[in-house]
Design a protein around this nucleic acid. Structure first.
Lengths: 174, 174
DNA sequence: GGACCTATTTATAATTG
DNA sequence: TCAATTATAAATAGGTC
């Protein structure tokens, strides 16, 4: 009832926020906004190949890592290894710097898997690519690009897993 | 003077836009919006280590690639090679699908350079990492994460180079 | 630190040129 | 296809709890 607000927002100046506290608050708020927008863009324009389906981060990662490499007799426990590694880091950082660190680490894990996959694909096809990661031609760059498109989408999706989606009926958009 | 609009936007349903034309239009518009938001977030919360300084794409890429690896006697022309490769693709796609393709390709090129750099760093230090890209431990994941933080920031910055910034005084924000 | 609140600014859907 | 317009939906700065 009473006036719960006093000052009203001013328009933004697009400059670094000097006050550290305000900067942190703005970062958290706007970061959510950016993720939400990115998610909306993905969904509405149909650039979303994967949909985790659960807001729980660990489950999402596990599902993703599990899907990335089907279990093979020669390397049985690799996926679980990454899941466990992720969880270890996850529980350590969860309450302090969950957002940025997990995004990056998730990205790194996905990247590693993707690179391995692409590496194998190239090696077993022709001889464009003989040495290690030393010589890259246009063909390989294109392949890498394609793989990265997936990764970028997954990173975006991962961001939406953390409560910016519309699962809770909270912002069900009509 | 006269009524130039008839229907007004309805609230968004967060679903794929079926009409292809509308989907394309929405993609273009919202993509700009996402870039703008991401740029604002970067600037306001001070997470922008690199600033190309020129809106010209090729110059920005050249500058970045050139900075990434100082010229060494053993591998003199590698950076130029990537710049030329990028330009070739660039000129071919420039007027049709500039936005998405260049973002991805730029990311791929930066990534390759970064990976090579990290690979060398790891090899010449200890023996965490003996095989190819087969075994990854927490330490290496952390290193990779750090490298990727740079890349992600650069990709964001690259997006802001294409006119979503505030250089034109068009949306000078007061 | 996060969840909620409100006035205001900002993004944008639908449309025209 | 691309830029401009304009009413409305959505994001958010500043605040409280």
């Amino acid at each position: 009832m009473s006036t719960r607000w006093t000052k009203v927002r001013k328009s933004v100046h697009l400059a670094k926020i000097e006050n550290q506290n305000n900067r942190q608050v703005t970062f958290s708020k706007r970061r959510n906004g950016v993720f939400k927008k990115a998610n909306e863009l993905d969904v509405m324009t149909d650039s979303k190949p994967y949909s985790f389906g659960h807001p729980n981060v660990n489950e999402a990662i596990k599902k993703y890592v599990g899907e990335e490499r089907p279990p093979s007799p020669s390397s049985p426990g690799i996926d679980d290894k990454y899941v466990q590694m992720f969880r270890k880091v996850n529980s350590r950082e969860l309450n302090t710097r969950l957002n940025s660190l997990q995004d990056q680490l998730n990205f790194a894990l996905n990247l590693k898997s993707k690179l391995k996959q692409m590496n194998k694909k190239v090696e077993s096809q022709q001889e464009w690519f003989k040495g290690p990661i030393e010589k890259m031609n246009y063909t390989e760059a294109s392949m890498l690009k394609e793989g990265l498109e997936d990764l970028l989408l997954k990173v975006k999706n991962y961001g939406t897993e953390r409560g910016y989606g519309y699962e809770n009926g909270k912002r069900k958009a009509e």
